[in-house]
Design a protein around this nucleic acid. Structure first.
Lengths: 235, 235
DNA sequence: TCAAAAGTGTTCGGACTACACCCATGA
DNA sequence: TCATGGGTGTAGTCCGAACACTTTTGA
């Protein structure tokens, strides 16, 4: 064995799972099942198995917890401080994921005692998980300012006021609805439906669906959906 | 040992080191010293030691190769495909780094047979290193379009035409020099010197230095240094 | 008929683009 | 004196920001 004098290290994957319920941005947390820190709040994670790529490990974890497949999943960062796990050195590769909460609800597994927490009320988490969450929030803001990524958090059909409130939640500020709707429609990414959502208003708001062809085509185009990006706090 | 039934894995760090010589963007590569793939071109890398954080491991590698300290270093991605190293599974955390080639030249260690390659003439590299380089190039373009990051590649004193040619090299396109200099000066990041650089022209171009206070203050501000970003290929 | 949210148009200012000439100097 | 690269100003266009009223309908 050529590399025989080298040290092997435990590798974990942890998932920062964002969800949107139509009103608030939320984070999915679990009660940790293992010692140490058993029963504390934690991100969903697990060790990387010898026959799993990182990508696959993250997908597996996500699927175990939510029952969902094919959701948006992106690598955030590797965390490798020496003492981040007090039992034994473990390097964690953090992934972040965006899902539609309502889609999740139908398939939820209760075995992990998972709960959604509003993004502004994240409890104390084990290890360096709070740091991971902070970094994921920053990355989400950063990326969403440039790419049409937030559609991943919405159901198939959604209204423009819903979309706006999602943006407003993420940037913790309010946008002018005339400018917002003009900008979002000018991307050409949305297809208007005939149906209206009447839950949130008497008049009702038209549903839209994402034009998936244009979405993948234009994903890398820079957008400017956020007014005054200079004044907002990014990465 | 609570985690005793888990598999430990080899972890490496690989560094994508960009440099600028005043004319071209380059990449620092070495002749690999170990089997397998001994003597092939490779990124500079090494295994993560039990007492090293990832950050420290990357800094150590960079310092071994270039003799430089305190250079710009940022985590790129973890690469974890199963067969990326044919001998034994190794997960690599890639870092990318920006240095001023001339600063490096005075401290270079020759023991690694390192060589600078123009970014457009990267040879075949071992394992998945070409993929890492591609990703690093994309990230550099992406980031440099938004943040004043390219100063890290320049010497203390530099001229605006030099800076422009750096941007042009990175985006493989040409910019209008009037617009470029207006934009770059309007950031307030540059301090004009009385001295001129006479190497590249008879008239000579004024040197500038970076206002380091404003640089750290404004690093996260979104810039728009690249004309027509829509037409350029980003991440 | 009223309250509550949806939907829409216009004006203003600032930023970006395109474009051309003069300057300084070494050879 | 001329060739080479450095340095600067302006006009036009486009885009984003600010801002207010009408529409629909359930209660």
């Amino acid at each position: 064995m050529i590399y025989s004098d080298q040290t092997r290290i435990l590798i974990a994957v942890d998932c920062i799972i964002f969800g949107f319920d139509g009103e608030n941005l939320k984070l999915l947390l679990i009660h940790r099942a293992l010692e140490p820190e058993k029963n504390k709040w934690s991100l969903m994670g697990g060790f990387v198995q010898p026959d799993e790529s990182l990508e696959l490990a993250a997908n597996t974890i996500l699927n175990k917890l939510t029952g969902l497949e094919g959701v948006y999943l992106e690598q955030l960062q590797a965390f490798g401080e020496l003492k981040r796990d007090p039992i034994e050195r473990t390097i964690s590769i953090a992934y972040f994921s965006l899902i539609d909460i309502h889609k999740y609800e139908t398939q939820i597994s209760h075995e992990h005692h998972a709960e959604w927490f509003p993004i502004k009320e994240i409890p104390h988490l084990i290890f360096d998980h709070n740091e991971m969450v902070e970094m994921a929030k920053k990355k989400l803001r950063y990326k969403a300012a440039l790419h049409p990524i937030l559609f991943e958090l919405l159901p198939e059909k959604f209204t423009i006021p819903q979309l706006q409130s999602l943006y407003e939640g993420i940037y913790d500020s309010e946008f002018d609805k005339r400018n917002f709707s003009r900008k979002i429609l000018s991307t050409g990414l949305l297809i208007k439906q005939n149906e209206k959502d009447k839950l949130n208003s008497k008049k009702g708001a038209f549903y839209y669906v994402l034009d998936k062809g244009k979405y993948s085509e234009n994903f890398h185009a820079f957008l400017n959906l956020i007014p005054n990006p200079d004044h907002l706090q990014f990465v």
